[in-house]
Design a protein around this nucleic acid. Structure first.
Lengths: 146, 146
DNA sequence: CGAGATCGTTTGTAGCACAAACGATTGGTC
DNA sequence: GACCAATCGTTTGTGCTACAAACGATCTCG
């Protein structure tokens, strides 16, 4: 996808298209910002979830991340292989794994957060603080968040 | 991706995530609405462009649609095979093709437009007219449109 | 005419969603 | 205590799309 130019005019008037275009652009910027760290958005999301709630099972991660179970296996394999996360045995149920971040994983997450914040600041620069807040409220309402 | 539930709370507060989530949801809803017609979003986009400006070359379509040249070949192959569009010889340059919609193509586009409009109305139902307009303005500004 | 650019095309790599099936393990039931 | 169904993580396969590189045909320009 090319995001160097704003969308052409007939499309830029359609609200649905605008929502979709900005969304894909944002996802693309985010992925680009993460790339130098060797991470893709799914990795960042999973790392964030594990950090917020250590010991989560893969099933719980799937439920919270919108990543399907098949892909989750691959993401965790990569995180584990790189020493960022580890699957520990889950007490009382040998089918499950308890996911934890390693020390290296927490450091990597901190770096990734910096990149995410800095790209967000840059991306939303066209809007002032009040406009950003208004946008947030509208999108929350559109998304159906209380 | 699962869009049946609103995004989980730690994420729903991040503006970048909200933009991205709503965008992907919108794209997904749109694709689903188009599916019964045997069309995918790229087909609809290309059909719309050809209809608005008959005789466009593939290069011009690529420039206006954010679809890359490789994929454009496949999209046009499918549209042509289904009798929706046709590649006619381009006057003065035998490398180029002039794209046109067939009568059947125009009918298919009309149907697709109905589906698109109806899904848009449904998707933006949580927002009243004034809110939708405010959202449109904010997103245009964010996208860098005039 | 010849060199270089352009247009459409083909091929290959990669990420991701989705669906189906599998072994290991668990829990409930008779 | 044995059996059956459900669950968890996993593997495999299909489909769509972005991206990059290369190609033949054709055009343009010197």
């Amino acid at each position: 996808m090319r995001f160097d130019k704003p969308p052409p005019e007939p499309l830029a008037s359609a609200l649905g298209f605008l929502v979709s275009w900005n969304g894909q652009r944002m996802a693309h910027l985010f992925a680009t910002a993460l790339e130098p760290l060797g991470l893709r958005p799914p990795h960042f999301g999973v790392m964030t979830l594990i950090d917020a709630d250590p010991g989560l099972t893969q099933q719980e991660l799937v439920g919270r991340s919108m990543i399907d179970a098949s892909s989750m296996v691959a993401v965790l394999d990569e995180l584990e292989q790189r020493g960022i996360a580890e699957r520990r045995p889950y007490p009382d149920d040998r089918r499950k794994h308890a996911l934890h971040l390693t020390r290296r994983g927490k450091a990597a997450l901190a770096k990734a957060r910096e990149a995410a914040i800095s790209v967000a600041i840059e991306a939303f620069e066209p809007l002032d603080a009040a406009e950003q807040e208004k946008l947030r409220l509208l999108l929350r309402k559109l998304a159906g968040v209380g």
